[in-house]
Design a protein around this nucleic acid. Structure first.
Length: 569
RNA sequence: CGGGACGUAGCGCAGCUUGGUAGCGCGCAUCGUUCGGGACGAUGAGGUCGACGGUUCAAAUCCGUCCGUCCCGACCA
């Protein structure tokens, strides 16, 4: 491609509406343009990268036996009603009425559709199957952000496995895990896997692929010593025991004017340290109010609570709801003596005594609360959010917490979809058996952005060879010099003949502009061809990542570049 | 959905407080001089000032409503 005929609109300034590095660079370097919030046009350079990312994914999934489909993006709403996910996904589903008045949704994901096709599977002899597609998903995210990292219309490869039993699922799951790691490696992304909550996807076990990055939306607890890593939505840690007083006293009410928070009560004369307080939270779960008790210095991890309750609908109660339930306002709440309300308590409170908590009377608290004696706990669970420095559950070393970008997520769905959609086959005994499913997703544009987050410097993008829009850019210093341009043209043609993808910068621009643009768009190799060198039979070969350059004979340039490209792919 | 910021030429911004014929830089077009790290000079093109309504002799500027975009949080495979 000749740059003089290409549409590569580079910008000198960062766009005003960008924060994330990948967003700034992909816009400035002419890869994407925003149409509306969370919706982007992919420009020619971006499309070349996107196509390569897709092909890498396709090759890996084909290698583990995947069969590619093309599925509808328009879904009748009733298929979403059948699995019940109309309720769990409705917030992000784009839907509209067709001309006949039927409700149609733009597919946010395709479990239901693949499962419908899979209803034609009738015998265990047809299993296992591995099906996938690479298509646009529409999700009306409440808050698109960070350029391509969180959008409302995007491309995803999702695959679906169908097996007769758990063992088959486990095998397909492990193959995907390896395929995904291969993919991330080619994309220049240092991904690691973490245990994750499955959220609204259904199923029990899932693994997320994460890459560290400040713009990420997830937080992961990990142990550098033993390699333990889990999403904060699921992470656990070992608790240091607290010494409770030996003497068990009667509860005692006392005045705490103006005390509203754990910290207030710590500072209050006659108060208590946070680890001797019980934090009482009121939650509305599936329209039912309940109390959630935490140790004063611990935070609730809502997803752990939701997973434990098997719900996807939970929210903190608001002022009126709290007062009508407990008779006091937030700041003076407690669970002592509360009847007929479900009380979920964090494991950290088991057996604790000598605790302080709200009295359910404004500006009053209770001393000497023994959890077992005074509170009618309905259920115990680990619902505490792991904090930086907590003790690793597997090796005992301190955990650290990092922000991460989720670049892939794989799920063992089990029979979650098989049952409502009637997916079953006859087993070898002629008995009906539900199909065991897995689903495996990876977002294409998000991974492009994640790769930029991981591969850039102050000058611009540094693409890994495998997904670079071009392998090499030929920067012509004086395109108006016939000898120089002829040399550049010849190099261009010979490189293309060797299968190297070349961008020929033949624009009538000053050298500085061309160098800056070349570095911004991030082509891995650069050949600089100028009159001075051409006279001496020399061109310059430079490496975008290291910044190193060397002079090389014109005769050898094609082979040298072709070899470097080959070695890097 | 809660909180905050913003909306003026392709891009980045000033002007608004104190109403009076819309500006700067970059980019773009033509010509000339330049040319191995974002050149210089000259001449130009380009804007319903987000939309609608109100106040006023007069609104980018004041008032109201709406729309849009970004950031933090909630939310979220």
């Amino acid at each position: 491609m000749r740059w003089s005929h290409a549409f590569i609109p580079t910008l000198r300034d960062d766009p005003a509406d960008s924060e994330a590095v990948s967003h700034k660079l992909l816009v400035r370097a002419g890869y994407v343009r925003q149409l509306m919030s969370g919706v982007y046009s992919i420009l020619p350079l971006g499309q070349r990268v996107r196509t390569k990312v897709i092909q890498i994914i396709r090759d890996e999934i084909d290698a583990i036996g995947g069969q590619e489909f093309l599925l509808p993006q328009l879904h009748p709403i009733d298929i979403w009603e059948r699995t019940g996910r109309i309720n769990t996904m409705s917030d992000i589903m784009m839907s509209f009425e067709d001309n006949k008045g039927a409700m149609v949704v733009l597919g946010p994901t395709h479990e239901e559709i693949f499962a419908t096709v899979a209803s034609e599977l009738t015998s265990y002899k047809q299993l296992p199957q591995l099906w996938y597609h690479v298509q646009t998903k529409f999700r009306d995210e409440a808050r698109p952000k960070s350029g391509l990292l969180r959008v409302r219309e995007f491309t995803m490869k999702d695959s679906y496995s169908f097996d007769i039993d758990r063992e088959g699922l486990d095998l397909q799951f492990d193959r995907h895990r390896q395929a995904y790691m291969n993919i991330f490696s080619k994309l220049g992304i240092e991904a690691f896997t973490v245990e994750a909550s499955s959220g609204s996807m259904g199923g029990k076990e899932s693994v997320e692929f994460m890459v560290k990055g400040d713009v990420g939306e997830d937080e992961v607890a990990h142990c550098t010593n033993c390699g333990y890593a889990a999403n904060l939505e699921k992470a656990t840690s070992v608790l240091e025991p607290v010494e409770d007083p030996d003497e068990v006293l009667q509860t005692e009410i006392f005045d705490t004017p103006g005390v509203r928070t754990i910290a207030d009560l710590e500072a209050f004369e006659g108060g208590a340290p946070a680890e001797f307080q019980i934090k009482t939270l009121v939650y509305i779960v599936d329209d039912e109010p309940m109390l959630v008790l935490m140790r004063g210095d611990h935070g609730l991890q809502e997803q752990k609570l939701m997973d434990m309750l098997g719900t996807i609908d939970a929210r903190p109660a608001v002022g009126d709801e709290i007062v009508s339930l407990l008779g006091a306002e937030a700041g003076s709440l407690g669970a002592v003596g509360v009847q007929d309300v479900r009380i979920i308590a964090d494991d950290a409170l088991r057996g604790r005594a000598g605790m302080t908590t709200g009295a359910n009377v404004n500006d009053k608290h209770l001393h000497n609360v023994s959890v077992d004696r005074d509170i009618a706990v309905s259920a115990w669970a680990d619902i505490r959010e792991v904090a930086e420095g907590d003790t690793c559950p597997t090796c005992g070393e301190p955990l650290s917490i990092s922000r991460t970008i989720e670049v892939g997520h794989i799920f063992k769905l089990g029979t979650f979809y098989a049952e409502p959609l009637g997916l079953s086959v006859l087993d070898e005994n002629g008995k009906s058996a539900p199909i065991v499913m897995g689903s495996y997703g990876i977002g294409v544009e998000r991974n492009m952005a994640a790769s930029v987050e991981a591969n850039h410097d102050e000058k611009g993008i540094i693409w890994p060879m495998a997904i670079a829009p071009y392998h090499v850019i030929i920067t012509v210093i004086r395109p108006d010099d016939d000898n120089t341009m002829a040399t550049a043209d010849s190099l261009y043609e010979h490189l293309e003949d060797r299968g190297v993808e070349v961008l020929l910068d033949d624009r009538a621009e000053r050298p500085g502009v061309k160098f800056t643009d070349a570095e911004l768009i991030g082509v891995p190799l650069r050949l600089t061809v100028g009159p001075r060198g051409v006279t001496n039979g020399i061109v310059e070969l430079s490496d975008r990542r290291t910044g190193e350059s060397s002079e090389i004979a014109i005769d050898e340039a094609v082979s040298a570049v072709a070899d470097l490209v080959k070695a890097a792919l």
